[in-house]
Amino acid sequence: MKTAITDVRATLRALPPGSLVLTMPDLPDPMARRVALAFLEEAAAQGGGHVLPWPRGAQLLLGAAPGAAARASEALGRLIGARPATWTLPGDAAELDAWLDGLSPPAPQPTSLVALEALCAALPVEEVARLSFFAEGPDPRPVAQRLAPADLALEDPDLRAQARALLCRRVLAALTDPALRGRLPALRPGLRLLLDLPLAGLPGSRMVGGGRSGRATPIALLPLAALAEPRFPALAQDLAAAGWHTGFVSRDAEAVGLLAGGGYALAAPPPAAPPALPPSGDAPLFIALGRDIPAWCRAPGLLWEVPA
């Protein structure tokens, strides 16, 4: 059901003096966004008022009861680390109007697999992969480079995983095709290679690790969910036979706590506090992704992302 902006404004103006309005901006994570909506709706069910979507990316609870609103706000703080803003009308009306005007609509998302496949297929080879660089220890000079599929900023985790699989396949196809390889970002000589792979692993036995060993051994980054696959041990064995270390990649800092047992590298955004990391031989213990790198990541045996 679409709600027009003029309708929401009219409803806002019609609220009796002293009314509370709770606003929750659209969160980047759709799960967190749905949890926020569920708690606003529960506050409305318990304490009166009603929830209306602001068409340009927010949920509004109009006419909330103070007790129910406070309970929802506290629960959301605990659950998603974000609380709705509370406005009292008519005093805050102008400020609320300005805040609403400042919101921008969320980026459109593909809603079908046909659209997703088209999106992935339409990317020119130059944009299919992204090259990033990693340092080890306190020295910020890069020692490793990661060739990863482009991040399409998809909200749905399953569509994102499928897009990753499709783009990984395109990157691998381009890497093994002399006519296309030159259109991928140019790998720097002398840097250890981290290569994102689809769940199926390497395509055939065509790609061997180039005979590098020890701390120069290239690292294959599989999605963390590969760990639950019955065929994972065979996959890791194939990779080792082809001269690769096995690693995992996740976009969540929570991934760090899930991996038990040594032997595998993990590339993920770093949690604020250093976790207990299992030893992993010649593979780095942890590969910190992203721009916000806490100081604990600049230790020997850990790789951390540096600006290109």
Binding site: A32, I80, A161, L227, D252, L258
Partner: peptide, 21 residues
């Protein structure tokens, strides 16, 4: 399933917090 947890560790952590709440 465990594979869902591994595919979305952040979502799994949120679900665990929601269950407790």
């Amino acid at each position: 399933p465990l594979s869902d947890v591994l595919a979305d560790p952040g979502g799994a952590a949120l679900a665990a917090r929601l269950a407790r709440e």
